[in-house]
């Protein structure tokens, strides 16, 4: 079909796509190119066109900055910790929910555990503070019973447990959705056949349920790998004052505090670019692994 005929047929579709495309170009692609300031000594006064080029200076500075390495360490530690103590929870919860026979009851519980996913981080942190903080409900109850309360919210050593608990409270319920869907796709006849053959509940879970979930678990693990440097931002930004930067500084908050607070634009852009490129590499690796396992990954589709 000639170009003009297709244009005549499809011009309305193109017009529909343009506004969204414009926004993506302006707020995604142009700023992506704006990362060139990582190779400059950028000042807003000179702008990108006349700020001096400094090569890899900002990256050298970055790699010799102990605070940057601390932020990397914190990020990786938190990701690893949450992989062990967060990741299995939605799976277990989904299996538990799936075993609730009454449909009404199940939908009710689902409704409740999904809900905190829609609360803001400020709200979640505030709620935790009201319950676990130094003036919170737990401390208040302990004090009334003559115990010395402890303040979980300001203890740097417990911080990693605290943020994981917050994440579990907020998002573990929502995380069950994909597992519940996978569970409902398992052929029920398998369970019946196994039961008739005398397999117990636990054996059925081990030999039917878990293998049935395997592809989804693998896929989410791989996606998590590609996302390893994103531990969330607001959660750490909000609680950094309470426990100090040593425990709470992650890569994103590092960029904020070192740049927007000091005006070291190029340095911050270098840190952000470093994170973006490492993240990109991780995603590519994750997808390679996914394809190796015969999974779809996030690209190679449509």
């Amino acid at each position: 079909m000639p170009f003009l005929a297709r244009l005549r047929r499809d011009w309305q579709l193109l017009v529909m796509t343009l506004p969204a495309l414009g926004l993506v170009l302006v707020f995604h692609y142009v700023p992506t190119l704006g990362n060139v300031i990582a190779f400059q000594d950028y000042t807003p006064y000179d702008g990108i066109s006349s700020s001096p080029w400094v090569g890899l200076y900002n990256f050298q500075w970055l790699l010799s900055d102990p605070e940057f390495w601390q932020a990397i360490r914190n990020t990786v530690t938190i990701t690893t910790f949450q992989l062990i103590f967060y990741f299995p929870i939605p799976i277990a919860l989904a299996i538990l929910l799936d075993s609730v026979l009454s449909r009404k009851l199940r939908l009710f519980i689902q409704g409740i555990v999904y809900m905190p996913h829609f609360f803001s981080w400020v709200l979640v942190v505030s709620l935790f503070q009201q319950i676990l903080g130094g003036a919170g409900l737990l401390a208040q109850t302990l004090r009334q019973h003559g115990h010395e309360p402890w303040d979980i919210m300001t203890n740097p050593d417990a911080f990693i447990v605290l943020v994981t608990a917050e994440s579990v409270w907020k998002d573990a319920g929502w995380g069950t959705i994909i597992f519940l869907a996978a569970l409902s796709a398992i052929n029920q006849n398998l369970y019946e056949a196994a039961a008739v053959d005398g397999a117990s509940r636990w054996r059925r879970m081990w030999h039917i349920t878990l293998p049935g979930l395997r592809p989804v678990i693998l896929l989410l693990l791989i996606l998590r790998l590609g996302d390893a440097l994103n531990v969330g931002f607001e959660q750490f930004f909000l609680q950094r004052d309470a426990v100090g930067s040593h425990a709470a500084e992650v890569l994103d908050t590092f960029v904020y505090w070192r740049t927007l607070m000091t005006g070291a634009w190029s340095y911050g852009a270098a840190a952000g670019l470093f994170k973006g490129v490492v993240g990109l590499i991780l995603i590519v690796i994750a997808n390679k692994v996914a394809h190796r396992f015969g999974e779809q990954g996030i690209y190679k589709r449509s």
Partner: peptide, 15 residues
């Protein structure tokens, strides 16, 4: 493609 790469806080702020 926007899934694969985020422009980063600083360039977006400057934009």
């Amino acid at each position: 493609l926007t899934f694969l790469f985020t422009p980063g806080m600083i360039p977006t702020y400057l934009m």
